[in-house]
Design a protein around this nucleic acid. Structure first.
Lengths: 349, 349
DNA sequence: GTGAAAGCGCTAACAC
DNA sequence: GTGTTAGCGCTTTCAC
């Protein structure tokens, strides 16, 4: 397939290159007849724009970078990606992922990409950069929008879920079911130093417990473990399950920071002979496929929506608009399934 | 951040633009001292290459397109993406996804992208194009590599899992467990007309049954349903479960084309009072998180590996090499969990 | 080992 | 409405 350039199209249609450009892009004033003639020739010659040439000349790349702190395939990441893609693709933008595992990757990104008009915007997902790093990013005159970032500093816009409200929903449910002692279990840490630590969520849980009148002594928080320190992921949860169950006053209402972790914990609790939900209630977070598989009561969130919202903000910013509400909080919702029940229902253990 | 161009760097280092280019890219002969001087100035000026300018001048875009027939967030897609990304990113390529839902999307892709040097290669995932379409793609002088495509025609290289061998593993297991009647359940069709239909897998199952000595009458195949035709996904499986269970001679060994579907079917079978694995054995496919959650015996496949392999082939082709083995078949492996058991163990129902 | 010069294919003033 | 003219920031012969 011989590459036809816009010059070829222009010549074939008997117009100048600039007219051909205007006609093909629908900008400026071009007569109906010329427009059609040019379009016909372009079609005939199988003309395609060179994105590189267009970018170079216009300064707009039609490309936005999506920064991820870990695997593209993770539930959260891939869903955010999907949302971002949907919005951006419909406006003809390409979205290019960059997985940033460590400082080296971030440095490389910062020193190679955002400068010389290589992307039109950057969307940063679940990232926790230090001040210097986010300043470095902000220093480029590019829209930077964050998804579930720990703070708004350094971002032109951010989108996040309302962790505090979510935890309040969960704790209120447990309270209403009569649970006297609660626990919060954090999923293992990702190896990337940039993943948001989830502190907001734990803090939200603690605060919710306080609001609902729980005494600090009745609230256990299991901090995250390093995933690598364990042979099998399962082992992490058998340890935690044992610890929870063997406490002098075992908690009966348990919140877990992610469904996958909740699912594993659930298995371990049952393996230890604890009946869920009869003896212990478990609430997950995310509402992913494992929650469905485990019939897990959980807090539903929609990372796809977060991605869509983030992309819309990026779009607005790229258009030079100032979003009316650049810092967006998205709701979660409690999904009741089969791992929560009233404490009154306890029969045996 | 003021954009420094290579000309600025060259001037600052007191060399010509071409020398600066050579120095920065490590190509051609440049003296050690110049190289260092140029590097230092580039660093100082925070120089970054303009990808567009480089592409335009060199004809290489350092970008490869990944064509997906449906959501980026799907287990298979996002894992292939991850594998592709890993290989390509380490060689400095960007990978840009394009979700092709329908003919319109494919036309748009075909007419806009691959031409004028907009990508260096195309990787096509689980795609089933017609002859004209794959010819159109092949007509560009670009490497095109397929992942789990129904055929090799039109591709410079393909990577796929060995569906036939996988199904043989599954059927052999069921046979060895004493199951007399088998069934194969296909997951609902995706709305995209381009997703590989999975015919290879069903054919593999049928063949495996034949090889293992099953009579055709003892083998049931439930064809895929249109997902949209159902109110809830669950309903699809309650229907199928009822149908399987109520047959005059109900099958007791069931293969399902995907874990998520197997998991839903499993729930329905149990809801109907059938004990799995005591009365019925179920084998899934994929080995994703829902398989873990459901303790599902399943055929493990690694889409990440497929992606890596595909990317390596694309890399070789872009380098102008001819891969020794361009049509690669990857193995699956049977993972035994808790949904398969010997028929002898049947106690009650 | 280094420099000069000619593009790569397009957009964007600016004229008319 | 349409054409002319400069570039955009690089890479790449080709000289020297």
């Amino acid at each position: 397939m011989e590459r036809a350039t816009i010059a070829d199209v222009a010549k074939a249609a008997g117009v100048s290159v600039s007219t051909a450009s205007r006609a093909l892009r629908g900008t400026g004033r071009v007569s109906q007849s010329t427009r059609e003639r040019v379009a016909a020739e372009a079609e005939r010659l199988r003309f395609m724009f060179s994105k590189s040439a267009a970018s170079l000349a216009s300064g707009r790349t039609m490309r936005v970078a999506l920064l991820l702190p870990n695997e593209i395939s993770r539930w959260f990441n891939s869903h955010v990606f999907e949302g971002v893609y949907e919005e951006l693709a419909s406006r003809d933008y390409d979205v290019v992922p960059y997985v940033i595992w460590d400082e080296r990757d971030l440095d490389a990104f910062l020193r190679e990409l955002p400068g010389n008009r290589n992307v039109d915007a950057v969307i940063v997902c679940s990232f926790d950069m230090n001040e210097a790093q986010s300043e470095a990013l902000a220093a480029f005159s590019l829209p930077v929008v964050g998804v579930n970032t720990p703070s708004d500093r350094g971002y032109d816009a951010t989108v996040r879920i309302d962790d505090a409200a979510a935890m309040l929903d969960a704790v209120r449910l447990l309270k209403s079911l009569g649970h006297k002692r609660l626990a919060y279990v954090t999923k293992p840490l990702s190896p990337s130093p940039f993943v948001s630590s989830g502190d907001v969520r734990v803090a939200g849980f603690r605060q919710a417990a306080r609001i609902c009148g729980y005494d600090e002594a009745d609230v256990t928080v299991i901090p995250p473990l390093k995933a690598e320190s364990m042979s099998r992921p399962q082992d992490v949860y058998s340890g935690i399950a044992a610890r929870l169950v063997s406490a002098p006053e075992p908690p009966t209402g348990i919140c877990v920071s992610a469904d996958f972790a909740a699912m594993l914990l659930l298995k371990e609790l049952r393996r230890l002979g604890r009946r869920v939900p009869q003896a212990i209630s478990v609430i997950g977070f995310d509402d992913d496929d494992t929650a469905i598989a485990s019939d897990l009561t959980t807090l539903h969130q929609s990372p796809t929506e977060l991605g869509r919202e983030a992309a819309q903000l990026a779009l607005a910013l790229m258009d030079g608009k100032t979003p009316a509400q650049p810092y967006v909080m998205m709701p979660t919702s409690l999904v009741l399934r089969d791992t929560t029940a009233a404490v009154d229902a306890v029969v045996g253990i």
